[in-house]
C-alpha cells in the first residue's frame, strides 16, 4: 500500500496538469512556407503570413490566390478588416498596412521593443469596442501591448498564463490567444485579460489563430503547413 502511494505521488509529479482537450474536425494544407499567422476575412478569404516575410491571400479552401510583392524579414502576425490587411514583422518590429485591393503598402509604423529578435510581437488583432490594436510579445516576457489606430503604444499588460504566446484574435467579444509551446488556446476577458477558458489542442507548432465566417476556430501550424478547423469551444469557466 505504501509503495502504491509513493508511486502515485511520484507519478503525479511527472504528470501534466489536466486540461480539456479538443480535436479538430478537418485539416487542409496551406500553400505557404512556414505559415506563422492567419486571419479570416468576412468575404471568406484568408490571409496567411510566412516566416520568410511574405503575405498570401487564400480562398476559403486554402488555395493560393495571390502573394504580396511586399517583402519583409519575418512576418509573425496578421489581421484584416474590410479594406486593409495589417502585418506585423517580428524582427523589424514594424506594422505595415496593405490595401486589400492590390496588396500594396499604404503606411507603416515601428513599435520599439528591445527584447529578443525571435521573442517579439507574434500576434496582431483589433478590439472594436476599445478601438485599439492588440499585439503580444512571444516570451521573456509575454506582454500585451495596446496600440491606438495610429499604432501608438497606449498600454502594456504582463501576461503570465503560458510559456509563450504565438497568436491572438478577437472574436465575439472575447480575446483568444494561442500558445505554441503549450499547444493551448486561452479565452481572455478583453477588459482585464483574465482567463475565462482554455483548451489543449495537440497540434505541433501552432502559430496562428482566427475564426472564419462560419464561426469555426482555425489554427495554422508552422511546422506542419496545415490549417486545422475546430468547432467553437464552450466556455465552462
Amino acid at each position: 500500500m505504501k509503495s502504491i502511494t509513493i508511486f502515485a505521488v511520484v507519478a503525479s509529479l511527472f504528470a501534466a496538469t489536466p486540461i480539456t482537450k479538443i480535436t479538430y474536425e478537418k485539416s487542409v494544407n496551406i500553400p505557404v512556407l512556414e505559415p506563422s499567422d492567419i486571419a479570416s476575412s468576412s468575404d471568406g478569404k484568408y490571409y496567411a503570413v510566412s516566416d520568410n516575410g511574405y503575405l498570401a491571400e487564400l480562398d476559403e479552401n486554402m488555395n493560393l490566390l495571390r502573394k504580396s510583392d511586399f517583402i519583409g524579414l519575418d512576418f509573425e502576425g496578421v489581421y484584416c478588416d474590410e479594406k486593409y490587411v495589417y502585418i506585423m514583422d517580428e524582427s523589424l518590429r514594424k506594422i505595415t498596412v496593405l490595401d486589400k485591393q492590390n496588396l500594396k503598402p499604404v503606411r507603416s509604423n515601428t513599435i520599439v521593443y528591445s527584447g529578443g529578435r525571435n521573442q517579439g510581437f507574434e500576434s496582431l488583432t483589433y478590439n472594436p469596442i476599445t478601438k485599439r490594436f492588440i499585439t503580444i510579445t512571444e516570451k521573456n516576457p509575454t506582454m500585451i501591448v495596446e496600440l491606438d489606430e495610429n499604432f501608438v503604444k497606449l498600454n502594456e499588460v504582463p501576461l503570465k498564463i503560458a510559456r509563450d504566446i504565438s497568436s491572438a484574435t478577437y472574436h465575439d467579444g472575447k480575446l483568444y490567444v494561442l500558445s505554441d509551446e503549450d499547444e493551448t488556446v486561452f479565452c481572455l476577458n478583453p477588459d482585464n485579460y483574465s482567463v475565462i477558458g482554455k483548451w489543449k489542442i495537440n497540434i505541433l507548432n501552432p502559430e496562428g489563430i482566427t475564426f472564419n465566417k462560419d464561426g469555426k476556430m482555425v489554427i495554422c501550424s508552422d511546422d506542419m503547413h496545415h490549417a486545422y478547423f475546430f468547432n467553437l469551444p464552450t466556455i465552462t469557466q
Binding site: 523589424l92 514594424k94 528591445s114 527584447g115
Partner: peptide, 15 residues
C-alpha cells in the same frame, strides 16, 4: 540585462 538585446531601424535588425 536580459531585456536589452535587439534593435531595429525598420530595415535591418541587430540582435
Amino acid at each position: 540585462s536580459f531585456g536589452q538585446v535587439s534593435f531595429s531601424n525598420g530595415n535591418t535588425s541587430l540582435e
